[in-house]
Design a binder for these strands. Structure first.
Lengths: 340, 340
DNA sequence: GCAGGAGATGTGAACGCTAACAAGAGAGTA
DNA sequence: TACTCTCTTGTTAGCGTTCACATCTCCTGC
């Protein structure tokens, strides 16, 4: 416990002494500065090895004024979508040489997002990605600290920030058109929670196609993304006469609906066709395998980092960008032509 | 672009000047030091507000020698298990006032884990949680830098590090016993990839019960956790005579097996009973709803942070701990008594 | 009325690194 | 030979905090 006994990890000066050079030369070697004699460099590297020296990034960050760390604010990373997005972000960030500091919110609200941004700002992150698909997160993004670049993923594009997102409206159009093309008179929709922008976009694409085709727009059902809420919606739909085609806002709810139909003896796709959204790894093995809309979460992560890095480089004169990732229709066995 | 124009964020000295005190007094206010006159404190807080000052944690970390950041090394956070564990860790860490710096590996190997640990050490994280359920990660944990506390989650307990994990063996026992109790002669097993410790544990618990009960131990099938690999195993099992009960090492593979059986007209649970593992949110809505073993990932996250913090506090004289979270049997509709 | 002590505040020196500048050595040129 | 130029290395001064210590003020008690 005496101070002389508890050995501190070696610092640059220790390496310098050992190699018989100045600490600055050690710094030059570490930073690949060209003007160092090969022999000197070798000597320094040897000393580094012998001492097991590791550079202190905190001290480095203090003087360089950047931490090579990006902040990620997210919500419920247990869900497949957010989890995949965050994974994509992390991979892309590390490929670009950045660390990722995570904050996942339990509930998303303005105060929560603002706090998270504040924390990350204190940590001097070089940039922030906010995965905040709820409308209530938008106000917090409005008064984000101006000195630090921010990119929103799946966020509202109204604000001052750049946005990267999957084209939800187009995805919903694909789903709805597919069902109409199969000869169904109209398409019912089980939407996501009303606060979610993704839920909005899917409703919009759905109703847009129906209206354009002059079809009746059935009453909207909605759930909370969970299989259970899909199950309940399924029970309601099965009890409603005339339902032959349903577009469910995500695969988990679609699973619940499938379960409800199975229990009530409603055959899919013979009696009712179902299209989901997301293409989670399980969908292909549902009973029946689910026709759905695939979102490329990896691409979203990649682009969000790309946009963020560009913004960081641009410094003061950055301009908001908007990047939209196209969804893809995936045909499986849960949809079939309408038979009267 | 002129240096006078690009304004830096305010620092402690700016606040001090504005409030008419020394920087040290500002520091005291920020750190809730008791010996500050109420009026002075108010003046400082006002100045902080007016200037929009935010403390620079990097500078703080340099002198206090801790960053209040924990490192988390993980693998494929797209899978439900790892994602949930990481989420639990993140929540627990933040509740304890720590940030989380994430590194998710694409492939897990000794070099990858070692690199990740090295990076995190350079970042001066105060502690590290390694979620590395593969055996190949173990060697990297052996020569972890001694100056920084590490906890392994679902990792090998052979090494020098503390381990928090779900009792896989017991889970497998519960599943196997349940099937035997239903009158099945023996139980087949679809295992996870051979490099995974969790796969091992489940095999061990399964074969242990069969052996103890004097039942034949059928040939082992195995997959890679994916629904597709479960589907393929299912096809093989359906073609094997005498199979009446199957314990599948995770729910996703169980889903694949259910699909295979459905396609071949094998009825579950009438002809074959199936038990899964994990209890993912979807399982309850499979066709039929899946009997499975629940893992409490939230608890794992919570305990891992608890153990880590304790170890950080203990400093040099820490001792390895081992915390085991019990699994829970969840009865649903995919299992039924054996009928000859 | 003054020693002693507690409370409030300030001063200087770290923390471990990089940036900016300085300086010495050797090569090339007139 | 002297002069410049380039290459290599060293020296000094921060970055924005906290820590250790010094100082000043005011109160208490004899």
């Amino acid at each position: 416990m005496s101070p002389s006994l508890e050995r501190r990890p070696p610092v640059m000066a220790d390496v310098a002494t050992r190699a018989g050079v100045s600490h600055q030369t050690v710094s030059r070697v570490l930073n690949d500065h060209p003007n160092v004699r090969a022999e000197t460099r070798a000597r320094v590297l040897e000393a580094i090895n012998e001492l097991g020296y590791r550079r202190n990034m905190v001290a480095r960050a203090l003087v360089t004024r950047h931490t090579r760390t990006l902040g990620v604010v997210s919500f419920d990373t247990t869900l497949y979508g957010p989890a995949s997005t965050v994974y994509g972000i992390e991979q892309a960030a590390r490929a670009a040489g950045y660390f990722v500091s995570m904050v996942s919110l339990k509930t998303i609200d303005t105060a929560g997002v603002r706090d998270a941004l504040g924390y990350l700002a204190e940590q001097s992150v070089d940039g922030i990605v906010v995965v905040a698909p709820q409308r209530s997160a938008a106000p917090a993004l409005a008064d984000v600290p101006t000195d630090i670049p921010v990119v929103a993923v799946e966020g509202s594009h109204a604000g001052e920030v750049s946005v990267v997102s999957v084209d939800q409206i187009e995805g919903a159009r694909l789903a709805t058109r597919h069902l109409l093309d199969l000869g169904h008179e109209t398409v019912w929709h089980v939407a996501g929670p009303s606060d979610w922008l993704e839920a909005d976009g899917r409703i919009e694409g759905w109703s847009e196609v129906l209206t354009a085709e002059g079809r009746p727009v059935p009453e909207l059902l909605s759930g909370d993304w969970s299989p259970r809420s899909g199950y309940e919606a399924g029970l309601r739909l099965a009890a409603t006469p005339g339902v032959t085609a349903v577009f469910v806002a995500n695969d988990q709810m679609a699973l619940g609906a499938l379960r409800a139909f199975a229990e009530l003896g409603v055959r899919v796709p013979e009696q009712i066709s179902i299209v989901g959204f997301d293409d989670i790894p399980e969908s292909e093995f549902f009973t029946p395998p689910l026709t759905t809309i695939r979102q490329d979460f990896g691409a979203v992560g990649k682009y969000s980092i790309e946009v963020l890095l560009r913004q960081m480089e641009a410094g003061a004169e950055w301009s908001h960008e908007r990047h939209v990732v196209p969804p893809r229709f995936v045909a499986r066995a849960s949809t079939a032509p309408f038979r009267a």
